[in-house]
Simulated scan of single mutants.
Amino acid sequence: MIRYAAWLRGIMPSNPNMRNEKLRAVFSGLGFESVGSLLSSGNIVFSSDETDVPALESTIQRALNAELGIAGGTIIRSRDELRGLADRDPFAGLEHGRSTYLTVTFVKDGEAGPPGPLPAQLTSAVRILGYDEDTRAVLAVIDNMDPSTANHMAWLETVYGKDITTRTWLTVRKVMAKL
């Protein structure tokens, strides 16, 4: 069995169909084992013998849409991929805080690569630390006190499309602990 983390896009905890117990039920109904959830923002862990990650993502997304009306997106990474990211310590010496967020944006398209240079209007709010090839993730430090921070996600969508999802490094670490 392989342990996976599924990062669901577009989850709004105030929507009754997007609550953790319903999300877990969809995963269990698909035959996955050891299904768990973390926080209320679409972080699901599970076990499966399936090794075809794009097939898993498609199966899960179809089920979420059919059963709960969730059209967002599903991005999966294995425990080993996430452990490798943690071992590389991408945020060494940096701290997540109220004004500064350490973020990981997972990209579905494995061929996409690094995002390229930041637009000038974002350089005061965002610092791209790099692109982690193994987890297909953009690593960034976000200045939450800068009003242009919201434009960071919009820019990433122009680069990668909507098949991305962002989590704080704290959330990624919590999910890893649950794997």
Score class of each variant (00 low, 15 high):
residue 4 Y to K: 05
residue 5 A to G: 09
residue 10 G to I: 08
residue 12 M to Y: 06
residue 13 P to E: 01
residue 13 P to L: 02
residue 14 S to C: 00
residue 14 S to M: 10
residue 14 S to A: 15
residue 19 R to I: 03
residue 24 R to S: 12
residue 25 A to G: 11
residue 26 V to P: 04
residue 27 F to Q: 01
residue 30 L to M: 12
residue 30 L to P: 05
residue 33 E to A: 15
residue 35 V to R: 02
residue 36 G to V: 01
residue 37 S to I: 04
residue 40 S to P: 00
residue 42 G to S: 07
residue 44 I to Y: 03
residue 45 V to A: 09
residue 46 F to K: 04
residue 47 S to H: 06
residue 49 D to T: 11
residue 50 E to Q: 14
residue 51 T to L: 13
residue 52 D to K: 11
residue 52 D to Y: 08
residue 53 V to Y: 05
residue 53 V to N: 06
residue 54 P to R: 10
residue 57 E to V: 14
residue 57 E to K: 13
residue 59 T to E: 14
residue 63 A to M: 05
residue 67 E to L: 08
residue 71 A to T: 13
residue 71 A to D: 11
residue 75 I to C: 09
residue 75 I to T: 08
residue 78 S to W: 02
residue 79 R to A: 13
residue 79 R to F: 05
residue 81 E to I: 01
residue 81 E to L: 02
residue 82 L to P: 04
residue 83 R to Y: 00
residue 83 R to C: 00
residue 84 G to A: 11
residue 86 A to E: 05
residue 86 A to K: 08
residue 90 P to Q: 02
residue 93 G to N: 05
residue 93 G to C: 03
residue 96 H to W: 05
residue 99 S to H: 07
residue 100 T to E: 13
residue 107 V to L: 06
residue 108 K to M: 05
residue 110 G to K: 14
residue 111 E to R: 08
residue 113 G to M: 13
residue 114 P to W: 11
residue 119 P to N: 07
residue 122 L to E: 08
residue 123 T to G: 04
residue 123 T to R: 15
residue 125 A to K: 06
residue 125 A to I: 10
residue 125 A to S: 15
residue 126 V to Y: 09
residue 127 R to H: 12
residue 127 R to M: 03
residue 128 I to A: 08
residue 128 I to P: 08
residue 130 G to F: 05
residue 130 G to P: 04
residue 131 Y to W: 15
residue 132 D to V: 07
residue 133 E to Y: 04
residue 133 E to D: 15
residue 133 E to G: 02
residue 134 D to K: 12
residue 135 T to N: 00
residue 135 T to D: 01
residue 136 R to D: 07
residue 137 A to I: 05
residue 138 V to F: 08
residue 138 V to K: 10
residue 138 V to W: 09
residue 138 V to E: 05
residue 143 D to C: 03
residue 144 N to V: 00
residue 144 N to H: 03
residue 146 D to I: 03
residue 146 D to G: 00
residue 149 T to A: 15
residue 150 A to T: 11
residue 150 A to F: 11
residue 153 M to E: 12
residue 153 M to G: 06
residue 153 M to S: 14
residue 154 A to G: 01
residue 159 V to H: 05
residue 160 Y to W: 06
residue 164 I to N: 10
residue 164 I to D: 11
residue 167 R to Q: 10
residue 168 T to P: 06
residue 168 T to I: 12
residue 170 L to A: 13
residue 171 T to Y: 06
residue 172 V to E: 03
residue 175 V to H: 03
residue 179 L to R: 02
residue 179 L to Q: 03
